[in-house]
Amino acid sequence: MVAVILSLALLVLDHRFHHLQHLRSTLAFLTYPLQYLADLPFTASRWLSETTSSQETLLEQNRELRDENLRLKVELQKYESLQAENLRLRDLVDSSFKIGDRVLVAELSSVDLDPYKQQVIIKKGAVSGVFEGQPVLDAHAVMGQVINVTPLSSTVLLITDTSHALPVQVLRNGLRTIAVGTGRIDQLKLPYLPTNSDIVEGDLLVTSGLGGKFPPGYPVASVTRIDRSPDAPFSSVFAEPHAHLDRSREVLLVWTIPNQIPVASAPADPVDDAPATPGTATPTDPVGDADAGGTQPSPERGT
């Protein structure tokens, strides 16, 4: 009887007031060995397949990555000149603009969680400076946010969970709305759009930055289906997340607010996605130098 009442009390506290984060963090830290054990065979097998993969495969992969790197760098040149121009224009209108978010790569743990909730565990925790509410991205788009931190691991709530809502903006016209999770890994819902709002299939949704948690301007999803029924005040709009929520193995943790950036550098190398330094170009890459030279004059091009 007591246990039942206690359970119900815990349920209400956790669901309504979120007072139990500390308790949950502590317990999660104590159960970390179990998670580690469950994940171990998969980490080991991945390590084994990596160390035993043939040289040809590695060379092949290396070549592919180099090609992709080249392509991305070319795109970056364009981006940098645009950024410089943007900063100058913003200076003209006296509006502040922050660039250079700090990011950290974290690996997913393969531990299975409650199948009816959209959560994942990442193998980076408070030791690396992860904090509650931190935005998590993958290479394509926004994935979710950190909801629970222990020293060595943290739990990420994906944007498709039913309890997650994300302030977004339509890139095409700046229309602001909220994207709510549906509980299905490939679908988001935009429930607060009036029937006459200007939105079409294929529109790209980006974060608006209004919630104060996510940095503005990151891609989220594209609109896949719009049901407008004349008798309903709101149209039901569905969108598909761009992030590979069920496939990504690595995620990016982002720091945008300056005072939350940890002072000591984390053990795993934190990457700065601010302008790529010429030093990162490998000497063997013939185009690396050309690229490094290319970034220099680009700010002038804007004037």
Binding site: L10, D14, H15, L23, L34, D114, K117
Partner: peptide, 8 residues
């Protein structure tokens, strides 16, 4: 805690 379900 392990499965990330609601506490309780």
């Amino acid at each position: 805690v392990l499965t990330g379900a609601l506490l309780g």
